[in-house]
């Protein structure tokens, strides 16, 4: 199972109404691909984060399906429109059923 999974998100503290903001996300995760073998030659089972979503006040910004070719400690950067003050909600879904969340509020300038 993945251990010490820590999500990190970079969002500006405030934005003008309708402004586009850059968002960076990084989560510590081994992203075991299912292609590697251990010392005894057995396949190490796949264990990855398979989906990442970002919503603002319940509306979708991005919904990403992730496959084993995403690097260890997955990094995703994108841009969101901020129509009003509110909350960004970030969610990562692990193969093992775990769900990791982070929430970032943003104020209007």
């Amino acid at each position: 199972m993945a251990q010490d999974v820590t999500p990190r998100v970079k969002v500006p503290k405030s934005a003008a109404a309708g402004e586009a903001v850059a968002i960076k996300t990084l989560i510590s995760h081994p992203m075991e691909s299912g292609q590697r073998k251990d010392k005894e030659g057995n396949i190490i089972p796949r264990s990855i984060i398979n989906r990442f979503t970002c919503e603002f006040n319940g509306q979708s910004v991005v919904d990403v399906t992730m496959e084993p070719a995403i690097s260890t400690n997955p990094y995703i950067e994108f841009a969101a429109t901020v129509p009003e003050a509110g909350e960004f909600k970030f969610t990562w879904y692990d193969d093992d059923g775990s769900v990791y969340e982070d929430i970032k509020p943003i104020a209007l300038k």
Partner: peptide
């Protein structure tokens, strides 16, 4: 933020 080494600093 782009430096994954900083996760481990945290």
């Amino acid at each position: 933020f782009d430096n994954p080494g900083m996760i481990f600093v945290e």
